[in-house]
């Protein structure tokens, strides 16, 4: 079976985002960009399923500017087989991404699409669920464990109260949570090999999808700042503070 893995290029999670003074957004000039951490987990999961023999081909997809090639090369170096770049300089919202992915699913007929649960730039947490809705497929979101057998995916999900397990009929959508696996680093030979793996370049228009944003971002501001308070010298002083706040009797 074939697996599709959408990967997004985002500000590296170790970089502290800087809000631009004119309120137009977060400064992405000359900062380190990486694959969305949840998408690394998605790629890793697809590779593990392939290593177990449940999967035969892994196709990585990224939608965005030309530099998303780097993100796709990372996926290929980790172990994806080929890549599709849907190139556009426009901002594409989750609904647009989901619509493009739905068209790619139509063309490629994968039995599984594994996405990250959220992109850590816009923190939307939408695309996987939207794709499942557009395709009328089952969805196993926030997955911490996946088992594939007999045309079904058994997905353990991280929910507010603990863990929930759902059984999905394939084809299905899975979105990854942090504890699903620990992604591997690409080895140097695999990075070299990835350079010759196939990468197709397309545009949203090739899929006939209108990606005009529905949402306008009118301002981006810094959140209210917290400032450091006082240091207390010992436990007695801390207890006194807690009492003063009415937290302790």
């Amino acid at each position: 079976m074939k697996v599709l893995v959408p990967v997004k290029r985002v500000l590296d999670y170790n970089v502290k985002p800087r809000v631009k003074a004119d309120g137009s957004g977060v400064d992405l000039a000359n900062v380190k960009m990486s694959m969305n951490p949840f998408d690394e987990i998605a790629v890793e999961e697809a590779i593990r399923l392939k290593e177990k023999g449940a999967v035969t081909e892994i196709v990585a997809v990224s939608i965005g500017e030309a530099k998303c090639q780097e993100t796709l090369r990372t996926a290929l170096a980790m172990g994806a087989d080929r890549a599709i770049l849907v190139q556009t300089d426009e901002r594409v919202e989750p609904l647009g991404v989901a619509k493009i992915l739905a068209k790619i699913v139509e063309e490629e007929s994968p039995e599984l699409v594994i996405l990250g649960k959220q992109a850590i730039d816009d923190d939307n947490n939408q695309t996987g669920q939207m794709l499942a809705g557009l395709l009328n497929w089952g969805q196993g979101t926030f997955a911490s464990k996946v088992e594939i057998a007999d045309g079904h995916a058994k997905v353990t999900r991280e929910v507010d109260g603990g863990l929930e397990t759902d059984d999905l009929k394939l084809p299905a959508i899975i979105t990854t949570d942090l504890r699903l696996n620990e992604p591997r680093y690409a080895s140097l030979p695999n990075i070299m090999k990835a350079k010759s793996k196939p990468m197709a370049t397309k545009s949203p228009a090739d899929y006939g999808v209108d990606v005009t944003p529905r949402i306008t971002v009118t301002n981006v501001a810094e959140p209210p700042k917290r400032t450091a308070g006082v240091k207390v010298a010992d436990v007695d002083e801390l207890v006194a503070k807690l009492k003063a706040m009415g937290v302790a009797k």
Binding site: L95, A98, N124, N125, T127, Q129, Q139, T141
Partner: peptide, 23 residues
């Protein structure tokens, strides 16, 4: 924006052809 809400709402949004506003 509980795990239940986050699981259901985007599926609804896509079926209605609207962009969800999260959180």
């Amino acid at each position: 924006a509980t795990t239940t809400g986050k699981n259901i709402a985007p599926r609804v949004a896509a079926m209605l052809d609207v962009m969800q506003i999260s959180d």
